[in-house]
Amino acid sequence: MNTLIKLIALCALTISLLVSSNASATTFTFTAIPDEDESQLRTRFEKVALYLEQKLGVKVKYVPVKSYSAAVTAFRNNQVQLAWFGGLSGVQARRLVPGSQAIAQGYEDQFFKSYFIAHHSTNLTMTDSFPDINQKTFTFGSKGSTSGRLMPQYYIEQYLQKKPQQAFKRVGFSGDHSRTIAQVQSGVYQVGAVNYKVWETALARGKIDTNKVSVIWETPAYPDYQWTIRAGVDTEFGKGFADKVQAVLLNMNDPELLNSFPRSSFVNATNKDFEPVLTVAKKIGLID
């Protein structure tokens, strides 16, 4: 028993040594997960980092993350001070770090939408009214995605008056928009919800066989991706730093950089623009 106590004490000591007090962030760090094509993340976004470094005059670093929730955690822990969030993750992040500001959004993000797509065997076709997808099998994208999960689920609950688990025969989370398309196309799921931009790009590249999968409904417009800057950057990097970052982002017009996101340009945004997202998230119980 004595040995046990000594061991515990030793472990506690080791941990307390490792956990030194407060982290310092002299470099300005940001993260971004694009909604399509996640390959070569670092290569592409280090170019963005270089651009920001030149314009801002501070050292800028890009941190690759795997999921929206990881991005939110990094933001909350001050491991990144700037992040390219989805609509939902941005709202979550700003709630966790009060005082953080949405400073820019993609031009397309002002009126973003999701497509519902269906396998040809369902015989569903494009309609203006909400399609009859009761008791089909259905896949969302990633669990934390706005266009792949939040908004589609909201409209499903609105129109079908049921939780997805009750409305559908089977509900899945593909984890990714490209996956959603591939899964519906191969008939793994009958219907799916997908980010419209990802669909359009895949279609343009000839990756979609329209005989097998097609769009059957599109959601009304909602705001989505945005740049959010952390509260307290002004004290850390100098007064007016947030405004400077905003200006630099809005002035980013090199197509190569913009293609990484991919957006045609960045426009002004405020926290207020994303209130619809927060309302929806609360309605479907993703945020308390």
Partner: peptide, 23 residues
């Protein structure tokens, strides 16, 4: 790597998720 550590799994998951089967 599947949840973001900088190991082989990071790229493996992305490659499979995005359908880059060659990678």
């Amino acid at each position: 790597g599947f949840i973001g550590m900088p190991t082989l799994g990071f790229y493996m998951e992305t490659a499979f998720k995005q359908g880059n089967y060659n990678e």
